[in-house]
Amino acid sequence: MRRKRSPLLLYLSLSAALAVLIVAASSVGAADISALDSLHILLSRIPFIDRLADVSRLHPTDFTIVLFIRLPRVLLSGLVGCGLALSGAVLQGVLRNPLADPQVLGISSGAAFGAAVAISFGLSFSVIGIGGIAAFAFVGALLTMLIVWRISFQGGKTSVVGILLAGISVSSLLTAAITLIMVMRRDQLEKVYLWMLGSFSAASYLKVGFLFVIIVVVLALIAPSSFSLDILATGDDSAESLGIEAQKLRRRMIVLSSLAVAACVSVSGIIGFVGLIVPHIIRLMAGSRNRRLIPLSCIAGAIFMILCDTLARTLAAPTEIPVGAITAIIGAPFFLFLLWKARGKGVRL
C-alpha cells in the first residue's frame, strides 16, 4: 500500500511548499513593509528574475530588514529544523526506539549547560561573529557527546538500552547543574531560561553558513548508508549476517547526528518535538525506508520550523514567543492525534 504511492509527488510538493514558505515567511514581520514589497526585494536578488521586481520606490532600510534580518532568520530556522529532523530520523533507527530524539542522548542538555555557563559568567564576547554563548553551547554539546560515548561504548559490544540510559542520566545530571547555575545567578535566570526555550532572534548569515556546512557534510556522510540503516533496524545479529558492521555503523551514525544536533542547538537553543515527530509523520506518509525518510524528514523539518518561527515572531508582535513553545503547542497535540489514529491498526510508528 505504501510502496505503490510514488514518493516523487511528495518530494515535489514538499520542496515547492518549502520554497514558497521561505519567500512568504521573509515577507511577513513586525516592520511595516507590505508582503508584496518584500517579495519584490527578494526577487530583485535572484538573477534573471530580478527584472520583474520593481524596487525603485523602496527605502534602503526595507532592504536591510528583509535581506539581513528576516531572510537569514528564515534560513537559519529552516536549517535547524532540517538538522533536528535528520538526526531524529537517524537516531530512532539506530537506537531502534521510536521515542528517540535529539534530546535523548543528552546533547541538548550539554549545549544548554555550556550556554548557561557562558551567560552566567557574562561571556558574551564575539569571535568572528559567533557569540560566546553559541560557542560555549557547541563545545558543551560536543563534550557531552564524548562523555555519553565513553560511558556507553566501554569495551566491545554495547546494548542500545545502555546508550539510551547513559544519555538520559547525563542529561538529568546536566539539567540539575543548570538549575544550580540559575539559582546561584538569579540575575541571569531569565536569560538562561529564555535561551533554553529556543529562539532565532540572533540569526546571521555567518550562523547560516556554519550550520549549512555542517548539515551538508553530515547528510553527505549519512545518506550513502541509508539502506544499511534500514537493515540495522532489524537487529544486530540480522544486520551482521547481512554483511553490515552493526556496531561500527551505529557509532558512526550517532556521532554524525550528534554533531548536527550540537550545531543546531548551539545557534538556536533547545527546540523540542521537531526531531521526534517530523520523522514519524514522514514514516506514516512514505514508509520507513531511510532512503526516503531521511531526505523527506529534512525538507519537512525545515518547513515545520520555519512555520513555527514565523508564528513565534508574528503572533504577538512585537513581543516574541519562544519558538520552543510554539513547536510544542503545535507538535504535541498533532502527535497525540497521530498516536490516537494509529492505535489498534497494527501500524507501528
Binding site: R2, R3, F227, S228, A233, G235, D237, G243, R283, S288
Partner: peptide
C-alpha cells in the same frame, strides 16, 4: 542466516525485508 526472530519496532514491509537479503 535465518535467525529465530528479527526486530520489528520500526515498521518495514515484507518486500523491503526480503530485499535486505540482497545487501551483500
Amino acid at each position: 542466516y535465518v535467525p529465530q526472530k528479527v526486530e520489528t519496532g520500526i515498521a518495514f514491509s515484507v518486500g523491503e525485508n526480503v530485499m535486505m537479503g540482497r545487501n551483500p
